[in-house]
Design a protein around this nucleic acid. Structure first.
Length: 1079
RNA sequence: GGGCGCGUAGCUCAGCGGGAGAGCACUGCCUUCACACGGCAGGGGUCGCUGGUUCGAUCCCAGCCGCGCCCACCA
């Protein structure tokens, strides 16, 4: 126990207090779990093992807890370490709180932990005997058996009136995962595989992930349901620089640098951080419904993947495709590491152009050179002019006395110089500029490196400037030049400033020893693979971008002066020899090195993208020849954004071809970036970030503002961001559920453009969920009481049934087509229109007509019920890849009625279109019927006729077919148009009436006080006007001989047909118009 | 400097050689027994501009205007 006589610091007291509060919370939780388990045994609430985790921390602190004894004597700890550890302790406490709170919350939400089960039971009314169905065997919500997959129901067994996503989503995800549905079914004949672009292990979900994962999950679910062994390989990336920076920043708060800790202890810190925050992203992916195979989750620093990295490095080295050399590289003076070209972003900034006089060594005059970086003059080793420049030709070969130094440097001639720019003289600094480096090589110039790794001036610089930061040195040098009258002029000048993409530090070209991948030999086959179509970009124009880069590729600098990553498998002896091998033992063996020869391993690690490039095969077990590797490589499609085509896609193709001898994927689907409603890139600093989970769960305004304004790089932006946020979301953001969000993403996934995320869209699709929910509610209401009857026995199909079944087939074809061509927007639109505009707006209304009619033939009624159930069930399967949760919930209820067995919609077959069922005749009949209904409704609406009022309707005209249709289908027409009576009249006997047309048939609603003749005249005139214009347009077209002779026959025929229709309609309308008389 | 993409209804976007579409927003009527997160009906667009190809152009071609992105060493 801690000695109570020693007074604890306030800080320590606070921590003890926090700890004991946590313990209390956990105790409370334990007792809750115990209580819950009496009612609902399988509900698992995982209590993190507190003792193990706390044991890592200050034993003194730990031993202060009530009832705990120290396991060992407190070891003396360095103060700094102590500080860090206690900070971490706080993190752990916070983490535990959050995790426990979330679990309780989720358990309560999903009904796993009923707070008062006894009261609930009392509220459930007993179903009447007549209502007994198979489902009533479990009248109570089946909280005790999640595997039984209960639908959310009100106590009487019907669905709630409004769809509530929060109640079902997590429950179903857990169910699927427990059932192992995410793992590919190896018994299938075909396979389908997608590699998840591994997110940063310590990152968190953003809109880009949400978008991308929605699309990948839709594809995976589609192919899984289509019968393929569908593998979605998941995992996380160690994200070298990004992760190391975060940990360093955390340490910096305590005043500890990574160098203070040393490599081993620092890496231990990074691993701890990874353990703490590494689970968040995967939990968030689960919330999106992503059906990836968690059992195969990988991490780029796993043993297996690390082995693959080493193997590939050794392989490439042996073939001479990896080499070590001293070259000019992009150096980040803040992070102290080399960067690849891709990690450097150039931004235009306002700078200056200094014109400096360089005196000739002869003493006779000077030349003027212009530079944006005057401090680099200390490293100049030449001045260059263009060989054809008459002004300077006589000076070539002479020397310059370099100001501020004692050095003499030559004037050389090189094509690189543009005589038209500036004075036509360029200072050459081979050690600090990529172009000058090349010039230097051509002219065999010496390299003078004047910078340290911090980009301050080193001992190569003249004494007065040594140790100065590069910008301070610039000020001094400019001042000194001016003082010596060597500064000719200073201009404002826009220039491209290269910055490290992580640190934002201005990158310095620096001469260092680095490892490189020779890119050209790898790029050639990779270019060919795309040219030959072995890898296909969708949309195709991205292949152009790919070619562009690949054909101008430079060697890839792969060594990084970091600690977090794969250490380079190279060893050095004292004599400067380098040995590359899988490990030190192998190196010694292969090179016959004596044990007494000391070897030290290269300190550097590899670029994160090196391991990422191996992802498609390293995750499948390479270098072992695993069954998975044989089955799933090459994978089918890579889904990603264009911004990592170079970083990742191109490198995967190059190394896949090199190592595996085949492309890593056959298609690359490139999607747009998610932007905010105004088209801006979402970023923390702009304060316009949306968290996908906030769209799912909803968030209060204050919490949203907090979220957007904490942890800003520039805290002064906070008020502006807060204000903008309050303006844009005055009510906060309501929860819409994962399904609505996913559907929205899919609908926005059009080709070749970025995505502006607009809240209006997600609201609309949330409403669609509710629509679907209520359609299902209606179908269940109609079918559940007759479930047994609906499944068995003969049935007959009426027109509405034949029509909707036909439309279903067309919809299936459209959705599949969309999915097959990565047109998620079209797929989703087809199904939206089917469900809402046709199934709900028309078919359900037609079905009501038959089901509410006691006279209706029972066979036909059975056909209607069966069609309701079948169509809904099929639509749910069709929709499932986009909206996994609501479809599962509803499917569980509807599947038994539709005669489908299965534990989950996930394992059901995806609908296939059956052409024969499209039923063109039923489509035509229905189109006519719809036209009639719409025409009559329009009259009612425009005449302000009471909606409920039934009206007498007369009709005349129509061809034989239409008369037959009317005779057969008038029950629907009368119901949907609220017709009281329907009677045929002779065309000449038409009374004054309002007119509606359907094909060649005229429907009339006699005036009889309900129709205002003036209003009808106006309405008709408008209609006639519209048709006349149409007639004129088509007529004009048909009047042109060139049209008749040159346009394809079907087009001409179609126009003729339309003209005939328009003329017929005009005839009918103008006859009726005349009867109404003049105004 | 090179390359790519985008300008269609108030907003977000489909359509891309022969009748201008959707969602949201807007207007009117309707709390009809699945749903007001709803129903029914309606208003709204010289499809950026100018030429060309074509019997016919929002759609193809050229140029221009505006917007965005990527690549690139002009000191």
């Amino acid at each position: 126990m801690a000695d109570p006589s020693i007074p604890a610091s306030a800080d320590e007291q606070r921590k003890r207090q926090a700890l004991s509060e946590t313990i209390d919370e956990l105790d409370e939780l334990l007792s809750k779990r115990e209580a819950a388990s009496r009612h609902a045994p399988p509900t698992e609430i995982e209590i993190p093992v507190l003792d193990d985790r706390l044991a890592d921390f200050d034993p003194a602190l730990f031993s202060a807890l009530p009832g705990r004894t120290p396991s060992a004597e407190p070891a003396p700890l360095d103060d700094k370490i102590k500080h860090i550890l206690s900070q971490e302790l706080q993190l752990v406490i916070d983490g535990l709180r959050a995790s426990v709170a979330t679990q309780i919350h989720e358990a309560l939400r999903s009904g796993g932990m009923p707070s008062a089960p006894s009261e609930r039971a009392n509220d459930i009314p007993m179903p009447s005997d007549s209502d007994q169905t198979a489902n009533d065997q479990q009248p109570e919500p089946r909280i005790d058996a999640p595997a039984e997959s209960p639908a959310v129901a009100t106590p009487d067994g019907t669905l709630a009136k409004t769809y509530d996503p929060s109640g079902i989503e997590q429950k179903w995800y857990r169910f699927w995962e427990e059932q192992g549905y995410f793992a590919p079914d190896a018994s299938r004949d075909t396979s389908y595989a997608i590699m998840l672009p591994p997110p940063n292990v310590t990152g968190s979900l953003h809109m880009g992930h949400g978008f991308q994962h929605t699309l990948m999950d839709a594809l995976i679910r589609y192919h899984r349901m289509s019968g393929a062994a569908a593998l979605w390989q998941c995992g996380t990336d160690h994200a070298g620089i990004a992760t190391q920076m975060v940990v360093e920043r955390n340490l910096a708060v305590t005043g500890v640098g990574r160098l203070d800790l040393g490599r081993e202890r620092f890496l231990a810190e990074v691993w701890k951080w990874k353990e703490q925050s590494g689970g968040r992203i995967t939990q968030q992916l689960r919330r999106m419904g992503s059906s990836m195979d968690w059992s195969r989750e990988r991490f780029t620093l796993d043993a297996g993947l690390s082995r693959a990295v080493t193997e590939v490095f050794v392989l490439l080295y042996k073939e001479g495709l990896i080499y070590r050399g001293q070259r000019l590289v992009n150096w980040d003076p803040v992070l102290h590491t080399a960067l690849s070209d891709l990690e450097v972003v150039a931004e235009e900034e306002q700078g200056k152009l200094w014109h400096i006089r360089y005196p000739l060594a002869t003493g006779g005059g000077y030349v003027v050179v212009a530079t944006t970086r005057p401090e680099t003059m200390l490293g100049d080793t030449a001045v260059a002019v263009h060989p054809d420049d008459e002004r300077y030709r006589h000076l070539v070969g002479q020397c310059i006395r370099l100001p501020l130094t004692d050095r003499l440097i030559p004037i050389i001639a090189d094509d690189y110089v543009d005589p038209a720019f500036g004075s036509g003289c360029v200072k050459i600094t081979p050690a600090h500029d990529f172009n000058d480096y090349e010039v230097g090589k051509r002219h065999d110039l010496p390299l003078i490196n004047i910078f340290t790794i911090d980009a301050s001036l080193n001992e190569q610089a003249p004494e007065p400037y040594r140790g100065l930061d590069r910008y301070e040195a610039r000020r001094r040098i400019v001042a000194d030049l001016a003082a010596n009258d060597l500064l000719a002029r200073v201009d404002d000048h826009k220039l491209q400033v290269p910055r490290g993409d992580r640190s934002q530090a201005v990158v310095e070209p620096l001469l260092t020893d680095q490892w490189f991948v020779k890119a050209k030999p790898l790029a050639e086959p990779a270019i060919a693979a795309v040219e030959q179509g072995r890898v296909r970009f969708v949309p195709d124009n991205w292949s152009k971008t790919y070619y562009e880069w690949m054909r101008n590729i430079e060697d890839w600098c792969i060594s990084r002066q970091l600690w977090w990553g794969h250490r380079i498998p190279a060893w050095y002896d004292d004599r400067g020899n380098v040995y590359v091998g899988r490990d030190e033992a192998e190196v010694r063996r292969q090179h016959g090195l004596p044990a007494e020869l000391a070897l030290r391993q290269d300190e550097d690690v590899l670029d994160t993208w090196f391991s990422s490039a191996l992802w498609p095969f390293s995750t499948l077990g390479w270098p072992e020849q695993t069954p998975e590797l044989a089955r799933y490589y090459p994978t089918d499609v890579l889904v990603t954004a264009f911004d990592i085509i170079f970083f990742w896609v191109a490198r995967m193709i190059m190394l896949g071809l090199k190592v595996m001898g085949d492309v890593p994927f056959r298609e690359v689907y490139i999607h747009g970036l998610v932007r905010d409603a105004d088209g801006n890139k979402m970023s923390k600093s702009k304060g316009n970030i949306l968290d996908p989970l906030d769209l799912v769960d909803g968030i209060e305004l204050d919490a949203l503002v907090d979220k957007r304004t904490t942890g800003l790089m520039r805290p002064e932006d906070a008020p502006r961001i807060a204000q903008a946020t309050r303006k844009q979301f005055p009510q906060g953001i309501p929860g819409h559920g994962t399904d609505a969000l996913r559907f929205t993403f899919a609908s926005l996934a059009t080709q070749g453009r970025d995505v502006r995320f607009d809240l209006g869209r997600i609201e609309g699709y949330r409403n669609f969920c509710n629509k679907l929910w209520n359609a299902a509610r209606f179908v269940l209401l109609m079918t559940e009481p007759h479930a047994a009857d609906s499944r068995a026995g003969d049935s007959a199909l009426g027109l509405p049934e034949r029509w909707i079944r036909g439309r279903m087939q067309q919809t299936i074809a459209a959705v599949r087509d969309g999915l097959d061509h990565y047109r998620f927007d079209l797929a989703v639109q087809a199904i939206y229109e089917f469900v809402w505009d046709e199934f709900c707006d028309w078919y359900l209304e037609l079905a009501k007509v038959d089901l509410n009619d006691p006279e209706r033939d029972p066979l036909l009624q059975r056909g209607t019920r069966r069609t309701l159930a079948d169509t809904l069930e099929t639509a749910l399967r069709l929709l499932h890849p986009f909206m996994p949760f609501i479809t599962e919930e509803l499917w569980q209820r509807i599947a038994p009625i539709a005669g489908r067995d299965g534990a989950s919609i996930m394992t059901q077959p995806y609908p296939q279109p059956i052409r024969a069922r499209q039923d063109a005749a039923a489509q035509a009949t229905f189109a006519w019927l719809k036209e009639a209904v719409l025409g009559l409704r329009r009259i009612r609406a425009e005449m302000n006729i009471e909606p409920r009022k039934r009206l007498p309707v007369l009709y005349h005209g129509g061809d034989e077919r239409e008369c037959k249709w009317l005779a057969a289908q008038q029950r629907y027409l009368c119901a949907l148009a609220r017709i009281e009576s329907l009677a045929a009249i002779e065309p000449g006997a038409a009374p004054e009436a309002a007119t509606a047309l359907a094909g060649g048939m005229t429907f009339l609603i006699p005036l009889a006080n309900v129709i205002d003749p003036a209003a009808e005249r106006l309405r008709l005139d408008k209609e006639i006007d519209c048709l006349s214009k149409e007639r004129e347009r088509i007529g004009g077209k048909l009047a042109r001989p060139e049209f008749i002779s040159k346009a394809p026959a079907p087009v001409v025929a179609k126009e003729r047909q339309r003209l005939a229709e328009v003329e017929q309609a005009l005839n009918q309308l103008s006859g009726q118009r005349e009867r109404l008389g003049r105004l």
